[in-house]
Design a binder for these strands. Structure first.
Lengths: 203, 203, 203, 203
DNA sequence: TATGAATGAGGGTTCATTCAT
DNA sequence: CATGAATGAACCCTCATTCAT
């Protein structure tokens, strides 16, 4: 079946090119958002920045919001990946050490593009039909839960769903705040960690 | 870089009629923001909602952003007022009781118009020249500091500026989150309080 | 003082379609200006008149003033072209004959669209940073100088830069005036010529 | 008839005050036009500049154009007055001396507020139903004619209506041009005079 | 599929004019 | 008459989206 093969053979590179174009668009969108904020963020600017045509943007994203959502997803994926790594690396370590790794992961992801990520967070509110948790957020919770479970004894009491959520909320807010104040990663890390440990060790 | 826009009020509402109109405009703006979000928030809609003409909006606010900032200021004032009350009422009470009052105050202000206030918070980022603390935020810090100072002994360690900030950041984030999840005020209060006390009592 | 506005063309009309659209816009602008004057001259009207959309106007001109300037430039180009022709055609003729050709050229250009051109002249004052001579005006002076130089002997005295300017100023004013009074071209020509020759032969 | 008298007595001061207010408005309008050009010229600005209310402006002028026309008339009156003086003072002098006085008068009036007057001239085009000569322009012509008639012999040929008009057109254009180039009054005078004498002595 | 010109609804802002006080 | 708040039509300009090439 050479025909079939041909199609596939031809499609591969095409799919490859598509993936590439999507990546280009996303990166262009990210840069526009970073450089000009929400106000200067528009599809024409994204296309120009990406060196492609607006038409192409609409080839891959049905509308602007979809593009923004893809950006949000990309950000969540990056976060998840780092958090997974942190989780893996924290195996066998103390609670404090584990949390430090977790916090570091978050700071890492945000610090890379603090301005961008803050914007994406606010756009998330607008674009996600209230409270519909993305699967990414689900996995994040699961990872944090697993990490905390490992140290159940050190914490001294069970960690319920609410506590997980709170830890995430608190650390997200603290990381945002620390980065907005231009703290060094070390200082930011220390301060966020302090907040989380405080929360976990509450009487 | 366009010339900086005037963003302060255009004319003092000295006359009675004027003061009234300003109030009408602010309330209309708030309602539009609540009902249609940032996307449906435009000066014509505000005027219509307020039953006045666009011209009148521009009689008192040089541009849309100035109007939004006035809304933010109004929100901050409301918060401050409640926090001042809470501070006064907490005189002679235990730390926990005092914090409960503080948290309640915040929840009260937010809960009244949760959607609106969340939007205003994100707009603040965009509209306020980075990190230029409003005087309102200064007073808020002072109040929280005073409240904590009263219980220095219960906390067991001195509360520095960073700690004050962190308490504010954490409670704001927790309140937002709780309200977004539609928790009852009691539940929200309990949960936020837990986070703050945890933070303060950290080892 | 607002930031200076971009006032140059936004994008070169490289494509064929583009060039055509630019021409359509310019002609539509001219017609609107002619038919309704400065007061009725607005970008929406221009678009409508041109049978295109406002967006298209802004695709090629960053703002209304830029469009007006393009119209002025077009007018200057037309004038220059005619004057160049007159200069060429006057080779070997008498001073009077040469001047007659020059004056005719000016009348021709103005008469074609007297109302329009008068408006453009007043707009020029407003739009061109005071006294910054356009290159067109430079070439016009050069042509008039060359034409006069050819007849140095007939004039009897050297023609300095001021004289050139004066000749241009006088003939422009006279042409405007003559056309506004609806004189025939012949009559206008005679009268303008009389003024210029008088000036040149002054004792 | 004391009643009648009373009314009159009361009216006098009122009329006086009215005249004063009108003057205030006109001067305010002039200043706004000078300072901000046609673009910044609006009734609210005029009122503010004059320290009165918009309502008052409309008490004395039915609309903005009427105000502008009054300004134009004021300008024409000033010119006429100076020209009348020049005419009177030139009695018994040579043609050149007389023309010099005439030119000086024009320059004087324009130089006082060059920017303003240029604007008024262009507005005149727009506001005066084409070619309807104002009586002021009629008197100006009459004065110039009278002045030239006195020197019929020196000119050597009769001066017809067209010539009068031309002299006026030429000198107006030259004065405008000279002032726009910021020439000193002496230089401007010399240059304008040269043009006019050239015209009059043409063969 | 890519291109980019074209579309046009939408939204910010101004300002001549009115009118209740 | 004076005041000045209010009005709202008008106008400039942007940008998400479409579609002919």
């Amino acid at each position: 079946m050479p025909a079939k093969r041909r199609v596939k053979a031809r499609k591969q590179p095409l799919q490859h090119r598509s993936r590439e174009t999507v990546a280009v668009i996303l990166e262009a969108a990210a840069r526009v958002l970073e450089a000009r904020g929400l106000e200067g963020y528009n599809t024409n600017a994204v296309a120009e920045r990406g060196g492609i045509s607006v038409g192409s943007v609409y080839q891959y994203f049905p509308n602007k919001d979809a593009l923004t959502l893809a950006l949000i997803a990309r950000f969540e994926d990056e976060l998840l990946e780092k958090v997974r790594d942190a989780f893996a690396a924290s195996e066998g370590k103390s609670l404090t050490a584990a949390l430090k790794l977790l916090v570091r992961a978050q700071i890492e992801v945000h610090a890379a593009r603090a301005g961008l990520n803050r914007i994406l967070e606010t756009e998330e509110d607008r674009l996600r039909p209230t409270s519909s948790d993305s699967s990414a957020s689900g996995e994040l919770k699961a990872l944090v839960r697993a990490l905390l479970e490992r140290h159940r004894s050190e914490i001294g009491k069970p960690v319920d769903g609410d506590a997980i959520e709170d830890v995430i909320v608190i650390s997200r807010a603290m990381v945002d705040h620390a980065l907005q104040k231009d703290l060094s990663r070390a200082a930011a890390s220390r301060r966020v960690l302090r907040a989380i440990e405080g929360y976990l060790h509450r009487p």
